[in-house]
Nucleic acid binder design. Structure first.
Lengths: 333, 333
DNA sequence: CTGTTAGCGCGTTCAA
DNA sequence: TTGAACGCGCTAACAG
């Protein structure tokens, strides 16, 4: 089209003012006489002008982009997190540039680098595990870095989330109190999903500490999914039929476990307890709501955005905001 | 920090070459002597230079951003679509700037305008229903506009998806062939989700055409969710217990329907048929896989990206790519 | 209340 | 194989 060659200059000419006046009207900055303003707005309308934020940001070095880097979209929890972040962002006039790492540190590093090239106002990362280069990159960028979902470590700037280790311990305590003794665990690729690994560790340590046997563990290689959970439980029970309760690395997998029980005629809770993590709707809507732990995801997203809105300078000492977690008793364990 | 004041100039000084040489090395454009290149790369490393795409794009007017505008993230289908688009995008070196409209045309218009301000290389929109201003905006931008998920209408540039009207008719035919006669329909806010409305219309028209009674309809106001589907089926059956089969506006709702049956002791298929739309994993993993229609979402995302990679000029005549759909017989209807 | 000047950091174009 | 000059479209800073 060559169409959108409409620039401030064109609008300015039509309105018979200078470019800076148009710029001021559009940004609502500085005092403008009503008549001038009307002429400018009319000219904007007539020309169909669309601002160029590249030029604007370059000149003012203040962007409304925010980088959001998530490990996955197939685990149901991250779309929910994304929705929360997006809602808070939109209200404040920011736009997300998203990246998905697939739990790969190198991929994260690459994504962070290319997002930083767009000079975002802030960067939201998932978790506290990053390559040294990733940390160096965001630190040098001098912007707010919000690490969400985990607080079990040293943040770059601010970390918002929960202690997964503590969540794992709480799971063990809760299930022991309900009378379960022989534990199983079904997870996906724990080496890559560090937070799931932390939960497992918390679980193990509390069991060992109280003199119980550690859980029988069944891990799959692929991504987390309902089907993986279903298959995982089947394998686990084939090898270790003595399990009384099975803790799943997350709700997606746990729902798969519930499905296996439904299909195999295993009575939930009586014959086998099932416990998840996240508190997703998908699991609470089950005929018997899943017993699980609620991570306060909506809150995490909201606080993440509020944090960089409040101040645009990173905190050199680092800060941790623990949004905690709640046990959802449910009906499956 | 004042940190990232590192620009091409700094790198150039350190490497004792001109800025443009650094630029060429970094973009791999033009012939560079190996020794020069090494010196430049070393300088880049030492300075920790991160390119500024704002400046680059402004100077070259060729961006690697792509706008992606989706109606929702809570309906499970859109995270899947997003995952597909993202995968294809990343492979090609593009980055998504995402917006969520919540099925609101005005919100879409607003989002499109602010994304266009970043001069994206292409814009991916959902569906064919947009405000006149939205259409004008993207047309004037002169970039590729890919409308995904629907082909039942006139595209701005290219539309990739399926005919939802045809899918609705196919649903009716399939269920009639299986012997069902008394139909019910559970949906969410049909006025806003135009594609769900089209499917319902196709369903109704085929039933009426073959002399059947139109479906009993139960709509909820809120967003689509598993819980809404569960509640919706309950209400529908309370009012119209004669229903033999219930078509749901999508799989999320249908899973809720299945849950209701499980909880209420209704035998699937024998006592009541349940039929969905989308073919999501979450529904195929059920003990009895959901009977539904597969929309080829991964394919749609992939083709969307390929389309604008192939050519950067919109097609004035418009074009439609029908990726079709398949009936998944399943075990619930 | 409005305008002028001087860049923001890069890539294109032309020259060497 | 390398460089100089110029401008992309906008806004900050200072005038008036």
């Amino acid at each position: 089209m060559s169409s959108n060659a409409v620039t401030l200059r064109d609008v300015a000419r039509l309105a018979e003012v200078s470019e800076i006046t148009v710029s001021r009207v559009l940004r609502g900055s500085g005092p403008i006489r009503a008549a001038t303003r009307d002429r400018v707005l009319e000219a904007v309308r007539r020309t169909g002008y669309v601002q160029n934020r590249l030029a604007g940001t370059l000149a003012s070095s203040s962007s409304n982009l925010v980088g959001v880097v998530l490990p996955s979209l197939s685990n149901n929890v991250f779309p929910e997190v994304m929705a929360g972040i997006n809602a808070a962002l939109v209200r404040s006039g920011y736009q997300p540039v998203v990246g998905v790492t697939d739990y790969d540190a190198k991929a994260e590093e690459h994504l962070v680098r290319s997002i930083l090239a767009w000079k975002p106002a802030a960067m939201i990362l998932t978790g506290l595990q990053h390559s040294r280069e990733t940390v160096r990159l965001v630190e040098r960028a001098g912007i707010r870095v919000i690490e969400i979902m985990d607080v079990g470590g040293r943040p770059i700037d601010v970390a918002i989330g929960l202690s997964h280790y503590a969540a794992g311990m709480a799971t063990a305590k809760h299930l022991l109190a309900r009378g379960y003794r022989r534990f199983g665990f079904v997870g996906h690729d724990i080496k890559r999903d560090h937070r799931a690994g932390q939960r497992l560790q918390g679980l193990i340590e509390w069991l060992v500490e109280t003199g119980m046997a550690p859980p029988r563990i069944q891990l799959s290689n692929g991504a987390s999914s309902i089907l993986a959970g279903r298959a995982g439980l089947q394998s686990l029970l084939a090898n270790y039929p003595e399990c009384e309760v099975v803790v799943f690395a997350n709700d997606d997998l746990a729902v798969g476990g519930v499905y296996h029980c439904l299909a195999a005629g295993i009575t939930l809770r009586d014959q086998l307890g099932i416990f998840g993590f996240n508190g997703l709707d998908i699991a609470q809507a089950l005929p018997q709501p899943l017993s699980t732990i609620r991570s306060n995801r909506a809150l995490i997203g909201q606080i993440a955005v509020e944090t960089f809105l409040q101040s645009s300078t990173p905190e050199p000492e680092g800060r941790v905001i623990d949004t905690g977690f709640d046990i959802i008793a449910g009906e499956t364990a």
